[in-house]
């Protein structure tokens, strides 16, 4: 059974200029002990999806259709107390900006003890656990680190502390929202290796969100590609990267400057802009920017699955 499964989810925000459909028919699965990568550029609906999973949608947002199942239970049917009990031991999150996750006016130790409020351990035992967790993310001199304030740490160390705090409750699933984007290249690599190791040790699942294709290829078992609030392709990492079926995925991989091994004067780009989400086209969402567009693309595309490799594209069927 999957730890987290999202079935045909539609989320709409009501705004003064009309309804905005942020997610349309999003389906994805995070199986036990697997790392699922979610790739998408700005405006693809990643944040809406995370907030929907955590039950933290903005007041003007609503789930129109579909379900979010966490360990088989529909999140929409949980009470506020049940949701609170789920966040932490059930679902933990690491965000892009480590400074935003730590309170600047309290010492690290106090914050790490406070988040263990559910536990019956004594204060000293909680402090020990905090130090132990810091050691697991390779913070040198963990006991002394507990007595320091967030600003005394470098960006990479702060992100590792945020990861330590998220994993302290040994969650069933970790949602990592661009955790390495704000870090330098050498730190990014070290953080990815650390996440991989911790995930194996704890045996949790992970939903890893990033627009960095290289990181996803390196870390993840499965990949889901989102565009303008829709899942356009999903499959195992090898399927998606080695035989991408959706034109958007192919374009994304082609555009990555890391992919170009010879110097070029003109880098490939994806011409055009994101569609207006207030008036989505009836047909394929990517059609206006797709160089392979045909007449049939005016019709809603089918979700074609072969060997667990899904692509929402008319033209993927023909291939």
């Amino acid at each position: 059974m999957s730890v987290l499964s999202i079935e045909d989810l539609c989320v709409t925000y009501s705004t003064s200029t009309g309804d905005l459909r942020a997610l349309r028919n999003v389906t994805l699965d995070v199986p036990r002990e697997r790392i699922v990568g979610l790739v998408g550029e700005s405006g693809c609906g990643k944040s809406t999806l995370i907030n929907a999973i955590l039950g933290l949608l903005a007041a003007n947002g609503r789930i129109d259709h579909g379900r979010i199942l966490f360990q088989g239970r529909n999140i929409a049917e949980l009470s506020a107390d049940e949701l609170r009990a789920m966040r932490g031991p059930g679902i933990a999150t690491v965000f892009q900006d480590p400074m935003g996750a730590l309170n600047p006016v309290f010492r690290i130790g106090r914050q790490m003890i406070n988040i263990q409020y559910r536990s019956k351990l004594s204060r000293a035992e909680k402090a020990n656990r905090a130090a132990e967790t810091l050691r697991s993310v390779r913070i040198p001199d963990a006991e002394a680190a507990l007595k320091r304030y967030p600003h005394e740490f470098s960006g990479g160390m702060k992100q590792r502390i945020a990861i330590a705090m998220a994993l302290m409750m040994k969650p069933a699933i970790l949602i990592a929202d661009e955790p390495t984007t704000a870090l330098d290249a050498t730190l990014e690599v070290a953080t990815i290796e650390l996440l991989q190791e911790l995930q194996r040790d704890i045996g949790c699942s992970m939903l890893f969100i990033s627009h960095h294709m290289g990181v996803i290829a390196e870390l993840c078992d499965d990949v889901v590609v989102m565009y303008a609030g829709e899942v356009v392709e999903s499959g195992t990492t090898r399927q998606v990267f080695l035989q991408p079926r959706h034109p958007y995925t192919r374009n994304l991989i082609r555009c990555d400057p890391a992919r170009q091994h010879t110097r070029v004067r003109q880098l490939p780009t994806i011409p055009g802009d994101l569609p207006n989400l207030r008036s989505r086209p009836r047909g394929c969402i990517f059609a206006p920017r797709c160089e392979m567009r045909k007449e049939i693309c005016e019709e809603p595309p089918p979700q074609d699955v072969s060997n667990g490799h899904m692509a929402r594209c008319h033209l993927a069927v023909e291939h």
Binding site: A185, E188, V189, M213, G214, A217, E218, F241, A258, R259
Partner: peptide
């Protein structure tokens, strides 16, 4: 240190 989009 810069990962490339190639899984293998």
């Amino acid at each position: 240190a810069s990962p490339e989009p190639r899984p293998d």
